[in-house]
């Protein structure tokens, strides 16, 4: 556990059997911040037992490779328990980051939240 007060970095909403996650932060950069966001995402799977996660990137303007690492780990965790991860609403500049690293092929990425909800 971090000694820092654990601010909530995620807004979580249940739509049917899909858990929609919005990021509070506009920039997912800071090492410590990424660690906390990663822990909170993993906790949704490990502690809350959620299996269908939809990450909405609508608020996010910025993202580094360390954050991509957390998303890959999250995907792996979900796959291991028969769950699914879908990403949506990714800003074009950030989508380019996924394309360059070829993670656009690795993740299920949808444009809009509505289409993403259908993707499960």
């Amino acid at each position: 556990m971090s000694s820092q007060p654990r601010r909530r970095r995620l807004e979580v909403e249940q739509i049917g059997d899909v858990t929609v996650v919005n990021f509070v932060d506009r920039k997912i950069l800071d090492e410590q911040n990424i660690q906390i966001i990663g822990d909170q995402l993993f906790s949704l799977v490990d502690n809350d037992g959620l299996r269908k996660l939809l990450l909405n990137f609508g608020n996010v303007e910025y993202l580094s490779s360390a954050a991509l690492g957390k998303l890959i780990t999250l995907n792996k965790k979900l796959q291991a328990v028969g769950g699914r991860l879908v990403l949506c609403n990714i800003d074009p500049q950030i989508y380019e980051v996924f394309e360059i690293t070829r993670l656009d092929k690795f993740f299920n990425i949808q444009k809009e939240e509505q289409a993403a909800l259908q993707a499960f």
């Binding site: 792996k76 980051v97 690293t101 070829r102």
Partner: peptide, 18 residues
């Protein structure tokens, strides 16, 4: 190479590539 399938889940190389 972080884009090679076997390396996709490894943390290294992606920053350099960006």
């Amino acid at each position: 190479d972080p884009t090679a399938f076997e390396n996709l889940e490894r943390p290294c190389g992606r920053g350099l590539m960006l």
